[in-house]
């Protein structure tokens, strides 16, 4: 039983840290605001969540376990909301996502004016 807890906790921590690192790489490598935000938003929620779940496996008593559950619920609630608000604010300030083809951009921008 103890070994199962240890191994599953370690697995969760590993996945979580991998997701956080990939989020960091995405933040640096993606081309425009929206894709960057996507990288950070998705991986931060899931990555932090996985790390918290991994820590739950290791928690020695119920008090710490319940604190971790509360933190998890808070991140699950706040993370996606902040990403949503950020994207919305960028949209309202007329920041357009970078599209692949050159003429595609021209078409959209010309149709807007």
């Amino acid at each position: 039983m103890d070994m199962i807890l240890n191994i599953s906790g370690a697995l969760c921590l590993l996945v979580g840290s991998f997701l956080c690192i990939s989020g960091g790489v995405g933040l640096l490598r993606f081309p425009d605001f929206y894709t960057r935000m996507h990288a950070v938003g998705v991986t931060d929620t899931l990555g932090a969540g996985m790390i918290l779940i991994g820590l739950m496996f290791y928690s020695p008593d119920f008090l710490i376990f319940s604190k971790l559950v509360i933190i998890l619920l808070l991140t699950l609630l706040i993370g996606p909301t902040t990403s949503h608000v950020l994207a919305k604010a960028a949209m309202q300030n007329n920041l357009k996502p970078k599209l692949q083809q050159e003429d595609n951009i021209k078409e959209t921008s010309s149709s807007n004016y």
Partner: peptide, 13 residues
């Protein structure tokens, strides 16, 4: 309507 999501989350928090 514009701020629906954040308003509801805030109300919860």
């Amino acid at each position: 309507e514009q701020y629906l999501v954040i308003r509801i989350v805030t109300k919860m928090l």
